[in-house]
Design a protein around this nucleic acid. Sequence first.
DNA 1: CGCAATCATCGAACCGGTTCAACGATCAGG
DNA 2: CCTGATCGTTGAACCGGTTCGATGATTGCG
Lengths: 342, 342
Amino acid sequence: MATIGDVAREAGVSRSTASYALSGKRPISEEVRRRVLAAAEALAYTPNAGARALATAQTKVLGLLAQFHEDEFAPAMLQYILGVTNTARDLGYDTLLVTEADGERALRRITDSRMVDGVILMNIAQEDARLPILRAAPQPGALVGLPGDCSGLDVFDLDFEEAGRVMVDHLHRLGHRELILISHPEHVVERGGAYVWRLRDAALERARQLGLTLHAVYGESRQPAVGRLLNGLLDAYPAATGLLINNEAVAAALPSVTYQRGQRVPGDLSVIGRYSADFAATFSLPYSFIESAPDRLGSMAVRQLVRRVESTAARKEPFVVRFISPELADRGSTAPPRPHSR
Amino acid sequence: MATIGDVAREAGVSRSTASYALSGKRPISEEVRRRVLAAAEALAYTPNAGARALATAQTKVLGLLAQFHEDEFAPAMLQYILGVTNTARDLGYDTLLVTEADGERALRRITDSRMVDGVILMNIAQEDARLPILRAAPQPGALVGLPGDCSGLDVFDLDFEEAGRVMVDHLHRLGHRELILISHPEHVVERGGAYVWRLRDAALERARQLGLTLHAVYGESRQPAVGRLLNGLLDAYPAATGLLINNEAVAAALPSVTYQRGQRVPGDLSVIGRYSADFAATFSLPYSFIESAPDRLGSMAVRQLVRRVESTAARKEPFVVRFISPELADRGSTAPPRPHSR
DNA sequence: CGCAATCATCGAACCGGTTCAACGATCAGG
DNA sequence: CCTGATCGTTGAACCGGTTCGATGATTGCG
């Protein structure tokens, strides 16, 4: 494999001249520049990444820490990952995907060794043990997800509170009076998944203000538990006419349950979910939903991260906490409740 | 950030001694070793990845090229990716995930620049333009998927031919005489996705031998096209009593279609799919299926790749083409056909 | 015509590791 | 007491880039 020394020799110049000719960081005569470029082309020269990283203290690689827990729905995470990798590449960065269970160790490894120029964290917990490590790291970091303490990091997330209110308001306007909200499994809450109670608490509060009955329950993440849960709930609350779903696995499982029970959507039951359009297409979900925009969030996080990586000025700017406001995609799965419909 | 020079100074030894004490590649007195380790601990020393890569010509990173085409079912790919990243980490490697559309450019970039010690390729096409590049690269490579020309690379894939025969045999034994096989979209075939026709041709051949009628058709990958297709097929071939599905998107969409049509599985229709157990759980699929073992394939590919990376002897061994033999997971979705059941 | 400014190029140092050849100290054997 | 082997340690070179300060050639101006 050709080094810059080979290119220089081939072009009959010094290594430094070859470097400048290729980078354009100093004026080089047209004649010499041509020779160097020709030599580089002829030798199929590609800079050695390790050497360049050592010299410039830049790797052009971003770290992406994503964890695949049993009780989180893997296909939903994929969207975030693609949002990150695609945007990173557009900006000239490759992505180191780290799925290690021990996130703290992994984070320390990739930052201390300077394998990456910056880090994106996913699956953020309320008290996330990785955050102190990331704050202390020499590289900037960005989060997809809202932790308890946002200081020192850029944070991007869906506005789950507003999402909860939008869901409740929507069904309230249609005349519903008793609703069921299915969240993620309780275990996700115990692990500190704030997006669960952020949506839930806001929905409960709004329901209280409006005088609605809202049954807020924890969900499941796998079959057959999900199916059992749904059937149990629909049996337990026969007067409920609206279903709010903040749980991808439950949303994915609902169609077959309603078919089996012979319930029509929205005739017998109005449904609103919270997931992405891609997810809806993948799982053939016919419900109206709050767009969770995972690709947009991943993309925003990367853009901000790269800004900080590439500009000293940007590194000094105050940290941002940016919420995407929930937009309801109407797929016609909600309607006014029919009296005694169930 | 502490360098090995800092550690050496702190321990009162030379840089080379510190290096040897940490790596254990030369005998070092107990006393000095203790001092060096203590200094490294105290300074929280972590070797600089770029410097180490430059010196050792090893990065401890593997490249993973995965493409997310519109007409391939993204959630199915995730399993392979996790199989690769998890196994890689177990063996001490991180994973550079590259989803770039231009795979040839991406491959050249990560191999020529020596960012990675080895490469795993997914979405292998019959005539895959990336293969010549990978063969010429200084790093070893492994494929998940079977190309037309396997030379110079280790190849791992499901035995799709045998999978096709197992499916047909199974339904034949139960007494079925007319079957439908739904493959991937035709566009996947045009792109060179050999796994489509490998299963299909073997199934057709076996059906011919057994005197069965097998309608082999291309599928779709997104809703609502998938649903339309399924309804169309079940209408078009009312005498068919068995359905073979080599297409994750179709499998995922089938339950709601049969519910809607009021057809019972296996009472009215026997069904066999080809996907993974994880996929079945994620999508609540109640069908018997050929296990495609994506995590096992990813894991095997990584193990072989790392063997070649780490041992000069292994690098000289002949290349392997290894097929996982299809195993039928019986979920009770097949039964003898009822006469005139449809 | 001489001096200063400008320009393109070069040599050397540096980034932070690893590794080789050589060195001095210790010890055993003759 | 001298020699040779053994052991632990060291200085220097190297990996392949980037970058700084210096150099010599050219040009412009008075």
